[in-house]
């Protein structure tokens, strides 16, 4: 069994794929590439492919880690060159490396993720004479001053519970762009030990700014990097590969 880790980027319209769509796409691409994918044991064997952290629908990304197992001999070079031929425009393999069989699963290492959110446009007439960039900037400050930001979750049997996600915001900065719009940088906790969705925070911001309709705000959301915990600091997962 061979274990290969890879980094990929997602741009353009491929941002509109869900996490499950992405898994299906990668698996079909690997099957077309005729590489000997390894399967899990059990009644319904599944190809052993994981993406470290699901990418939300609508989000582009530049450094996404994933890993895959093969039966037999496949080098990281063959993997990269063969799968690239089978990927649609908008998905690119940046790097592929062998991973030690006993190294921890990539997904288990994920601690945080850095997002870049660009306020793209708003189609709300009532905001025409106001400064949407400034508005967002102020609301971010107000949001960060809160001790509690409650996110609702629908659990089993449709039971709704609330969780304070404020502690999951590690860093949040905003910057005005020349057009009067804003760019935010959000470093958020992510992965199996808890986290917050950037989409949820942007919706909160829009609410806070008094945009009457969330649908009126349009963001370009991009995931720049995924981090793991290295002692006291966060390090990009991409640098481990």
């Amino acid at each position: 069994m061979v274990r290969i880790g890879f980094l990929f980027s997602r741009t353009g319209h491929l941002a509109y794929l869900s996490h499950l769509d992405m898994l299906r796409l990668f698996i079909r691409a690997l099957r077309r590439a005729d590489l000997n994918l390894a399967f899990s044991q059990g009644f319904n064997p599944h190809p052993r492919l994981t993406l470290a952290l699901p990418l939300p629908l609508g989000v582009t990304a530049s450094n996404e880690p994933g890993e895959v197992y093969f039966d037999g001999v496949v080098t990281s070079e063959t993997f990269k060159s063969e799968i690239e031929k089978q990927l649609p425009e908008g998905l690119q393999i940046i790097k592929a490396v062998p991973i030690e069989p006993d190294a921890p699963a990539l997904a288990a290492l994920v601690e945080a993720a850095m997002y870049r959110a660009e306020l793209r446009s708003f189609s709300d007439l009532s905001l025409e004479n106001r400064d949407p960039g400034k508005l967002i900037q102020n609301s971010l400050e107000m949001l960060l001053q809160k001790e509690e930001i409650l996110a609702s979750r629908t659990g089993k049997k449709k039971k709704i519970s609330y969780l304070n996600v404020r502690p999951y915001i590690i860093e949040a900065e905003s910057e005005l762009t020349p057009g009067g719009l804003a760019v935010l940088k959000l470093l958020l906790k992510a992965g199996s030990r808890g986290g917050v969705s950037p989409v949820f925070l942007l919706d909160q911001l829009a609410l806070e700014s008094g945009f009457p309709s969330l649908r009126a705000v349009c963001w370009n959301l991009h995931r720049e990097s995924i981090y793991y915990q290295d002692g006291d600091t966060l390090q990009p997962l991409s640098e481990r590969m």
């Binding site: 319209h13 509109y16 796409l25 649609p88 425009e89 908008g90 963001w219």
Partner: peptide, 14 residues
């Protein structure tokens, strides 16, 4: 950005 299942409308499938 505003609709459900936007991948219905992309047209660049394999």
């Amino acid at each position: 950005k505003k609709v459900q299942k936007p991948a219905r409308y992309l047209g660049n499938e394999w």
